[in-house]
């Protein structure tokens, strides 16, 4: 919205784990489940963003589990938003700093404004607020941390829950053998497809921290709105042991269930693409939420993944299923 741009700071690329910032701004002392994927994501994002950051945290796991009770685990400013309106609150903070700095009412740097919304708070009930923030091109980064369900309320289906997943609102049964019957929304594509002002959109995964942190920094360096969709496996919701979040995250990428790309200058750039894909059944069978699926369902998912990859221009063979 700025008529006259206020000066923004730039951050550097991270070359390796050894060069990753030592400082943590998402600190010990929160009630997220043991082995929580979204908590790993929060930590990496906060690390990459650094101290001049303001987080907006709409209702969701990362609100409820992190701030109980009357305390916060962030060493930077943070504000709760409703599950509906994180994009709005973020827009307001960004606009306030534009105006206050321009009018000489605030002496300091323009902060990184980062909205950290769950998949429900970004692809479903919070979609309008997200789209509004992107359309208006406020200087902020909107992150959708995707654990593929409304997890804090007890794992209910969301638009990004994969086809065939069992949730407490999509229980499989004789009449509905596959559990969830719908194909997931592709939120990152939705942002790319209809928001021409947005200069940077990326997907990332907690399985690939250097890639994730550099994408956060790139997104923060962009003038105006940026969006990231980050895959964050949920041990409780998906039904895998607490020590497996990173394996599951990597398996999602290795099977093509999650794709890693950046969109800038009107182009998609695929990152971290294995030469050969593992069959999706390997990913599905590692999680209890898919344990009811038949071979037919799994084949449908494989087809869906193949099609999704083809649409992105990814042409890599899928390894034969070895059973």
């Amino acid at each position: 919205m700025a008529t006259q741009k206020v000066e923004k700071t730039k951050v550097d690329r991270i070359r390796s784990l050894a060069k990753a910032p030592m400082d943590d701004y998402y600190v010990s002392g929160h009630r997220t489940c043991a082995g929580c994927g979204p908590a790993i994501n929060y930590r990496m994002v906060a690390k990459a963003a650094g101290k001049d950051t303001i987080f907006v945290g709409p209702t969701g796991c990362m609100y409820v589990a992190n701030t109980s009770y009357l305390c916060v685990p962030w060493a930077v400013p943070w504000i709760h938003a409703q599950i509906t309106n994180a994009g709005g609150i973020g827009s307001g903070i960004s606009a306030a700093y534009e105006a206050r700095i321009r009018k000489g009412k605030y002496k300091g740097k323009f902060p990184n404004v980062i909205v950290m919304a769950g998949d429900g708070g970004s692809s479903d009930i919070g979609l309008q607020a997200l789209s509004g923030a992107m359309y208006r091109n406020h200087d902020l980064l909107f992150i959708s941390y995707d654990n593929e369900a409304y997890a804090n309320t007890g794992i209910q289906v969301s638009p990004t829950t994969p086809y065939g997943a069992r949730t407490t609102f999509t229980p499989p049964g004789p009449v509905v053998p596959e559990g969830k019957k719908l194909w997931p929304k592709d939120l990152a594509k939705l942002i790319v497809g209809g928001h021409p002002s947005v200069a940077y959109v990326a997907t990332a995964s907690i399985g690939y921290p250097i890639d994730l942190m550099n994408k956060v920094r790139k997104a923060l360096n962009v003038e105006g709105a940026a969006f990231m969709h980050i895959h964050a496996p949920c041990p409780k919701g998906w039904g895998f042991p607490a020590d497996k979040a990173i394996e599951i995250a990597r398996l999602a990428v290795q099977t093509g269930m999650w794709t890693m790309w950046e969109y800038e200058n009107d182009e998609y750039k695929i990152n971290i693409q294995p030469k050969k894909l593992k069959p999706v059944s390997q990913y599905l069978e590692a999680q209890d939420r898919f344990s009811h699926l038949t071979a037919e369902h799994k084949a449908k998912i494989q087809n869906f993944v193949n099609h999704k990859l083809a649409m992105l221009g990814i042409k890599v063979p899928v390894e034969a299923v070895t059973a």
């Binding site: 919205m1 303001i54 609150i89 307001g92 903070i93 606009a95 306030a96 700093y97 789209s131 509004g132």
Partner: peptide
């Protein structure tokens, strides 16, 4: 008038943006 004039995506958004802006120190 030197102000950020924002086209909100509905009244819910008007108030949400005002909330964020006010919390960040702006008169809204």
């Amino acid at each position: 008038l030197d102000a950020e004039f924002i086209h909100a995506d509905g009244e819910h958004a008007q108030l949400s943006i005002s909330h964020g802006a006010s919390a960040a120190g702006a008169r809204t």
